[in-house]
């Protein structure tokens, strides 16, 4: 068959397929059953013609046009569209919880790293009192010397709504970075866990040194327990991602990495709404001196228990 004959034989199919693809506009749901059947039938015909064109007229305009149309129809037919409401509901009802359970061993390692570096930060601060200045700045240290803790000024820095939004987005960003750092063989995740652990330990020791620990506790008791736990969870998700890259699982490394990425990103995404909620708590409740510390601590405990009850609920055990 010569080129002109081949072109004449497939032009009608190509034109009709392109018209259907335009009508679908990347959404299969826009086509009715008859159109869909026609699309599938044309796709098969075009694929067959493409196989012939690639063999006898490789790298020609017609082979390229056939490939482009075949690819567009293949892409449309291979997609598995799921309504977003259903996707979100399934994610929070099942996918996130299963992924969390599967990631639990890595989260436990992350918790050990965090606690270890908290102790390191605490000990360094006890020896070098200026150590915590790295994180809170010289003004905060000067304030501590005069019996004022920097957290007292948080409420006056910006309106509570702005504060909430800024804190929540910053924390979600840190959680995403802690997860993403896992792809660098876990170094990024370990760095974020170590950094936050040392900072927390240093702050505990500094406020203990200047006898302001109760004021620090008054500020962090509502949001702190769950917020720190979620940073550990994000770091654990990062270590899970690193595991996919580093562990020898007797299968292609790319496949193991992709599985680990799908499992661990669910954890990183699933904690984002909790961090959003904690942003509100840290912006509206934590800086409010009128709220008694006992109530803040109670809220902190309830939030933490709520998260644990949600993630560890029965029926989601890893088989």
């Amino acid at each position: 068959m010569d080129y002109a004959t081949l072109e004449r034989s497939c032009t009608a199919d190509l034109d009709e397929l392109d018209r259907l693809l335009e009508d679908a506009d990347d959404e299969l749901a826009r086509l009715d059953l008859a159109e869909l059947e026609r699309l599938a039938s044309l796709h098969r015909r075009v694929m067959g013609t493409f196989a012939y064109a690639r063999t006898h007229f490789a790298d020609t305009g017609l082979a390229e046009r056939l490939r482009a149309s075949a690819f567009r129809s293949h892409r449309l037919l291979a997609a598995r569209p799921v309504p977003w409401r259903e996707r979100v509901a399934t994610f929070f009802r099942r996918d996130f919880l299963l992924a969390f359970r599967e990631t639990l061993p890595s989260i436990q390692v992350a918790a050990l790293v965090f606690v270890g570096f908290t102790l390191v930060g605490f000990c360094i601060e006890l020896v070098h009192v200026e150590f915590v200045e790295v994180w809170v700045g010289p003004d905060a240290i000067s304030g501590l010397r005069h019996g004022e803790i920097w957290t007292d000024r948080v409420g006056s820095m910006a309106p509570a709504s702005v504060l909430s939004s800024t804190i929540a987005t910053n924390n979600i960003g840190v959680a995403f970075a802690a997860w993403a750092g896992g792809v660098l063989a876990g170094i990024g995740s370990l760095y974020i866990l170590a950094f936050n652990g040392m900072m927390f330990g240093g702050m505990l020791a500094a406020t203990h040194h200047y006898e302001l620990l109760d004021q620090l506790f008054a500020f962090i008791s509502a949001h702190g327990p769950l917020e720190l736990s979620l940073i550990v969870v994000a770091g654990g998700a990062g270590l899970e991602l690193a595991g996919g890259l580093l562990r020898d699982e007797g299968r292609p490394r790319a496949e193991a990495l992709q599985d680990a990425a799908r499992r661990s990103v669910r954890v990183a995404l699933g904690i984002a709404p909790w961090l959003l909620l904690l942003g509100f708590v840290e912006g509206f409740v934590s800086p409010d001196m009128a709220v008694p510390t006992v109530l803040k601590a109670l809220l902190g405990a309830l939030l933490w228990l709520g998260f644990v009850a949600y993630t560890m609920r029965p029926g989601m055990e890893v088989r």
Partner: peptide, 11 residues
Amino acid sequence: FRGALDVTLDL
């Protein structure tokens, strides 16, 4: 990618 009729689509 493998398309219909098991034909490879190379892009």
